[in-house]
């Protein structure tokens, strides 16, 4: 395969192979019974619901606490599912030597990556949908919440899946699978803490602005999380803020995917 020809696929010719790869990934996910992981997470929700049923909900603040917990776990678990799916794609193909036949077909490496990215995002969205059935639908809603804030929170989560999947695909080209998963989990769930820590350390020094800029290269997933705003009864965020967050996701996803395609094209498989 020519690396140059595969760099940036033409839009029309690229769509069908991308869809085919994506479909294959989803089917493989089902075939390998990877929904076990989803079932485990669902079991946690069921246990939580059972406990809430037994001990009761004393006041609206507790109801909101349970709602917040349920939605936060929905977000965490579906992000985890996206991460696990994306981070496994290339290493598994390489290990099982199934990448060669795939690339022997008229599918460019760029298309292959795009298909895997799309499938990972789809799996994440599917997981989020299932989790919401378990974590949001039965949760008590005893105070005032804005539906539009919830909608914004969900859209931003899908945006977060796009970033996670792209980043996971990129890093899986450098880092061993398990290690990659651990490091990605740290970035996805703790990046805002790390950024805050670094910025606070530099605050008041000559390096303050430099550190603020450099930490901007660390993806901050807290910008995609509006769960606490929803459960706190906060009104929907303004159009500008919301669009800016989506733009942030789009920029990160584009950069990571472009870098992944670039690296993958130069890699010997």
């Amino acid at each position: 395969m020519s690396t140059d020809s595969a760099a940036i696929p033409a839009p029309e010719s690229s769509l069908r192979p991308v869809a085919l790869v994506a479909r294959a990934v989803v089917l493989e996910t089902v075939r390998r019974r990877e929904f076990y992981v989803l079932a485990i997470f669902m079991g946690i929700f069921l246990a939580g619901a059972l406990i809430a049923e037994i001990v009761g909900i004393e006041n609206p603040a507790t109801g909101t606490f349970i709602l917040d917990l349920g939605l936060s776990l929905c977000v965490v678990f579906s992000q985890l599912v996206t991460l696990l799916t994306a981070a496994r794609q290339i290493p598994d193909e390489l290990e099982a030597r199934t990448l060669h036949p795939l690339l022997a077909k008229p599918v460019s490496r760029g298309q292959c990556l795009m298909g895997k990215w799309l499938a990972s995002v789809f799996v994440g969205v599917f997981a989020l949908g299932v989790m919401l059935l378990m974590g949001w639908v039965p949760a008590p809603k005893m105070e005032r919440y804005y539906d539009l804030t919830l909608l914004q929170a969900l859209v931003l989560q899908v945006a977060a899946f796009c970033v996670i999947a792209a980043l996971a695909l990129l890093s899986s080209l450098f880092i061993p699978k398990m290690l990659n998963m651990v490091l990605l989990a740290i970035i996805v769930f703790k990046s805002s803490t790390i950024i805050g820590f670094l910025q606070a350390r530099a605050a008041g020094t000559a390096l303050e602005d430099v550190v603020r800029w450099l930490t901007g290269y660390i993806p901050d997933f807290s910008h995609f999380n509006l769960v606490q705003a929803y459960t706190g009864g906060v009104e929907p965020v303004g159009f500008e803020t919301f669009t800016l967050r989506l733009a942030y996701a789009a920029v990160l996803s584009t950069i990571y995917l472009a870098a992944a395609v670039w690296v993958f094209n130069r890699r010997t498989v």
């Binding site: 603020r212 930490t215 901007g216 290269y217 901050d220 803020t241 800016l244 942030y248 920029v251 990160l252």
Partner: peptide
């Protein structure tokens, strides 16, 4: 130029 966005956010 990507850090502009998180700085703004």
């Amino acid at each position: 130029v990507s850090p502009i966005l998180p700085l703004q956010l």
